[in-house]
Write a protein that binds this DNA or RNA. Structure first.
Lengths: 224, 224, 224, 224
DNA sequence: CATGAATGAGAGTTCATTCAT
DNA sequence: TATGAATGAACTCTCATTCAT
């Protein structure tokens, strides 16, 4: 979900194996990517069929291979394409926030809203863990790095507490992804409410307020 | 990762389609499950081949269907088998904690350690999202419900702040899973350090300590 | 066309990717090879279809891949299989000859007769130059080496004139192959007549007999 | 390798389906033929791709069909083009020989040298057996006929011994082709040495010289 | 229980050729 | 002439599952 940001846009559709030279070619390529998003989103990578993608796109089977070398290739192109869409949606809302904590919350809200409107994106990106592990790893690593550098700056400015920014970045990303899964893909609760609750979690954590009375006990059971 | 807990244990290996009656049969069944864990862990569900599983187990292809009805069946059996292992490892350490916040951190640490020792488990359970979506959803939903009820009790006892416990449960689970991915599967940092940093995140959040001097604004960029 | 001679028969069908363990399996494998000989012989490697081979053999498409990894694999197995057949036909007739020159002529005759009865073999082995160049080269190199060593021995015994035995081996092999092409595959002249004429060529060459009168001139044009 | 000799040269490039009218067209046609020689030489007929030929030639795919009707067509054109090159190289050296035996040896030497400098030609012409069997057969038949008629004349002049000239022509051609394969394409021995040894084979055969002492028998093994 | 050969539907992929621009 | 996108028939290969022994 990010990071083609400062590259000079080498191709109109990142990841495509061939850059079309004519307008007609550009239309066909876009039709293939849209069809692939539908097909992969509905069926998942392995049950998706290239013949179905071309059928949805309204082109012949062979046309697929004019633009992509393989099923994996279009999947990868699609992941990058969708990542770009997420970035374009979320980035400006982060940039508009007054401080870092507000920024993280704005990003969370934006991410949640985007996921809800593009549920298939969630599945596609997640499945890349199994289809193209390197891409999956790179995707999350880059996102975490970016979050971490935001936190680092904020920490230096004194906006947030001291601590390991990388660990906190991964934790934050985990929160966003799982809230996205639960409340974006599966549920339909109001994103604002979710973010408000999670926001309190972020800003104050599980710790009781300093002025509230502490009691005692314990409890049990496992984790996820 | 859990919750076949209170079933009356109809078979020594939960999920197997047939309970072996002979000692030889039991050995074959166990060999198949071990082989499947390797094969699925290395190749993922779709690229794993039954013929490879039987080859690793040292039995004939046909023998597979004596114990399992299908490829999906052994995968599910395996997921339950592994979930039980995670639960048996994590649960007692949660139960031993003095209070809820300590419990969550103990669970996090235990989970991280377990993931590191069984990296293939992480992958197999994750892939169930695509192999058996209902099981995947149920797995995380049950885990979240359990965490939420722990938080609810703690909240009522005043151990933690007020707020929506389900949202916080999903957030916590997201933190655990992503730290598990980053520091359990991919990295080799000391789990204690990771949990300590994440613990400060949990207990105090991103908010600066009340006594630290506040400066001003800034921000930018997107989320995951 | 030779040279699995002194190996301890590692497999009933040299080159097959899998050795059948049951009688039924052996029958299927043989049926596939026979079908492949027909199909490749009639259509050549590239126009031959695996589906046609299995159809001729009376088995399902998938059964092909029980025994061979690819179209190239069965082609290679077939070349070895046929080479063995040639060897088994020609070798004893060479061994029965009284001296080396008679042996070479007996071999030539036997080769010619064999080619005539198995015209498809000729085409298949020849095509291996393009399908499996290493096999083709090895095939001819080994044959030439064997001929050369026969000539070497004969030379040391004084049965033939002094000279480079390798060059003469390749020359002899060229004669046999081209006479096989012209009079075995394409023509139907009596092999005995052909060999008698070629035999005079072998034993006395183009040189006029010592007692015949020499004249003068010259001439022109190219070679093959 | 020859014999478009007396046709009225309808086009600068024999075999091309269309004669270019412009200078630009002529350059494109020549670029395509050169590219085809490379591509067919490296990959063989079936693995060669039109798209690769056009890529090598630096023209668009569609341009190919301006000059050739099909893949087979350019292959044939190429074979004729190369045959002409062989002929032009070999013929004058045969014509310059003082007698028939010297002529055959001169031809052999010239052929060997040419093959060595144009290894891809050997392969391309050989493959025509499978791409265009009629052309292949005609090619060798014509060559043999020409050699036979030379021998016939020489025989009538008493330069060579009596015998069937056609059989001897095919034998000679076989020698040349196989020595070309072994010492032209695969090896790098001095052509003169090869021809000298083969020459002794031609002029005197395998027979021991009349004045050398005869010993006795022995033999074994098969032919090619 | 175990074996391993057989099955066959279905997938991805190739590429010579056509044609609108 | 030149271009390059579009075509689609045809092919090789995979593998979960069945079944006779």
């Amino acid at each position: 979900m990010s990071d083609t940001k400062n590259t000079p846009a080498p191709a109109p559709v990142p990841g495509a194996n061939k850059v079309p030279k004519t307008e007609r070619g550009r239309r066909t390529l876009r039709a293939l990517l849209n069809a692939a998003a539908e097909e992969f989103g509905e069926k998942g990578f392995h049950d998706a069929a290239i013949s179905q993608i071309t059928a949805r796109a309204g082109v012949a089977t062979g046309s697929f291979y004019v633009y992509f070398d393989s099923k994996e290739a279009i999947f990868q192109a699609l992941v990058r394409d969708l990542s770009g869409q997420v970035k374009d949606f979320v980035a400006p809302r982060i940039a508009a926030a007054p401080d870092q904590i507000a920024a993280e919350q704005a990003g969370q809200l934006a991410y949640l809203e985007f996921v809800r409107q593009h549920k298939e994106i969630y599945r596609i990106i997640d499945e890349s863990e199994f289809v193209d592990p390197a891409a999956y790893r790179e995707h999350y690593t880059k996102s975490a790095t970016r979050i971490a550098s935001r936190l680092q700056s904020a920490m230096e400015r004194g906006e947030i507490s001291d601590g390991d920014c990388e660990v906190r970045a991964w934790a934050l990303m985990g929160i966003n992804v799982f809230l996205g899964l639960r409340y974006g893909v599966w549920g339909d609760e109001a994103p604002e409410d979710v973010v408000r609750e999670a926001g309190r979690f972020i800003t104050e954590g599980l710790a009781p307020r300093k002025d509230s009375p502490q009691k005692s006990p314990a409890r049990r059971e496992e984790k996820p």
